[in-house]
Design a protein around this nucleic acid. Sequence first.
DNA 1: TTGGAGTCAATAGG
DNA 2: CCTATTGACTCCAA
Length: 379
Amino acid sequence: APESPLSSVEDPVRSLGEVAAAGGGGLSGAMSAGREAGEPTELRPGTPLPVPGHSGLSIQEMVAMSPELDTYTITKKVKEVLTDNNLGQRLFGETILGLTQGSVSDLLARPKPWHKLSLKGREPFVRMQIWLRDPHNVEKLMDMKRMEKKAYMKRRHSSVSESQGSGDPNPNPNPDCSQGGSPQDGALQHQLKKPRVVLAPEEKEALKRAYQQKPYPSPKTIEELASQLNLKTSTVINWFHNYRSRIRRELFIEEIQAAAGAGTSPSSQSTKASEGDYYDANGSEGAAELQPDLDPSSTGVLAEGDCVLGQVEEGSSGQHAASALDSLFSLPDGGHASSPAVRNPRDSSLRKKKAANLNNIIHRLEKAASKDEPHEWEF
DNA sequence: TTGGAGTCAATAGG
DNA sequence: CCTATTGACTCCAA
């Protein structure tokens, strides 16, 4: 069998079956029926990407049994290993995690604390942990990188001549190998595919301002915003979904940094953080002062007790059968499990964000108070 | 239905 | 090439 240019590099297992992934009901997608055929999207839900060595456990099972992991330390280590060895997020993500580059970037840049992750969300971290365990894995990835490059060179050479059909030397019976084919009929699809919406800075500002005032706008408010900004309603809705979600994540990170920073050094480096990107640096006014001490846990966003600190108390109990797993869940080198410490509740940035989240609470209270009657309260 | 969690994938910068 | 950002989509639970 002639080695395929690149697909062979990828997960050899992969779902053979793969029922036409036509994708379920696309409710709103109606009009833009441009969904092109091919592009089975590399790794899909089917085969959860086999975990390296390992006995029969599926990652799912391993995730379930996994003790609390320090996501921050894991991502830090992964980033270090990748950069040290010139390995990209794309290759790492697609072959090790089964995720795309963008997702990997996001994950590595702002990992959520373990206890805030769903089972699904923990999977990538467990995979990274396992991957880190064996230094040999780095070698394997590097080999793959070389192979990709080789394949790429080869393709670039041959493709030039066979400009049209059949030319594609695709020895792979499996239509999976997306890499190659694509630039075929670009022009056509380009027109049919709805262009990506890019919000103007001012539009984002307006939305952020609206968020400050009402993190959970009513359908009515959304409509207004949409028409005022001349955007589709769905775009506004999506924006709020995404913004809330990303604000939430920012808070997690701030908490981690606050805890870590406070512990290592009294003065500590004022984690420059991405500051005011996710919330209006200016607009948080009043709220902050009005609520001196809101119980964070009630927001459902600012976790209970202590996130970051959690993993200390864990240890002792679950050993037993875990002994075997023990080796699996521990970084190869110094297992320095981030030593958290006191955290500084006075962190202005954190406070500001928590304050900004006040409206979140209000929203829920409103909701609880009056199910019906989408009251539009003014403050 | 609505909101949250995870992701994808286009795209902007390096 | 690579990485970061981000609008949209899929799943799922309440």
